[in-house]
């Protein structure tokens, strides 16, 4: 179970420092936050249809983009989900039973909402004092 913070502001600070331009950082975070819902629903769809390739693409996309956007808890949860199925042979895949699936998706959705909320707060703070980046 994930123990990482929802938002790793140190990681965002490092990203901002490396980008060297608050506008680029804000643009990236806004796009990430906008795409969060569709990333989670893509995972849900892949689980429902038991499409292993789509599942792996979706979970990797969520994991890596979240890591870059400082969304540490979501990235860690995605990594755990990746491991959960990746360690099993792809044919036949042992997909989670429906109850478990709904529980995982509920947790993902909740975490995605909280991540989006905290990122918006971060963006608000950033526009108030750009030196945060």
């Amino acid at each position: 179970m994930t123990t990482a913070p929802v938002i790793d502001t140190d990681a965002l600070g490092r990203l901002g420092e490396q980008l060297g331009d608050p506008e680029v950082l804000c643009g990236f975070i806004r796009r990430y936050e906008k795409m969060l819902g569709q990333r989670v629903e893509r995972l849900h769809h892949a689980l429902n249809t038991q499409d292993h390739d789509d599942w792996m693409d979706a979970v990797l996309s969520l994991k890596t983009s979240s890591a870059m956007a400082g969304a540490a808890a979501l990235s860690q949860l995605a990594a755990e989900l990746q491991d959960y199925l990746a360690k099993r042979p792809p044919d036949p895949v042992r997909w989670p039973v429906t109850d478990c699936l709904e529980s995982v998706m509920a947790k993902l959705r909740h975490l995605a909402r909280e991540t989006a909320r905290q990122l918006r707060l971060f963006l608000n703070r950033l526009s108030a004092s750009p030196q945060l980046a």
């Binding site: 980008l19 331009d21 680029v24 643009g27 796009r31 906008k34 795409m35 983009s65 870059m68």
Partner: peptide, 16 residues
């Protein structure tokens, strides 16, 4: 294909 990563790379390479 991921729009956020794509645009980030466009910005990064543009900076370079």
């Amino acid at each position: 294909d991921d729009e956020d990563i794509r645009e980030l790379m466009v910005a990064l390479l543009g900076q370079s």
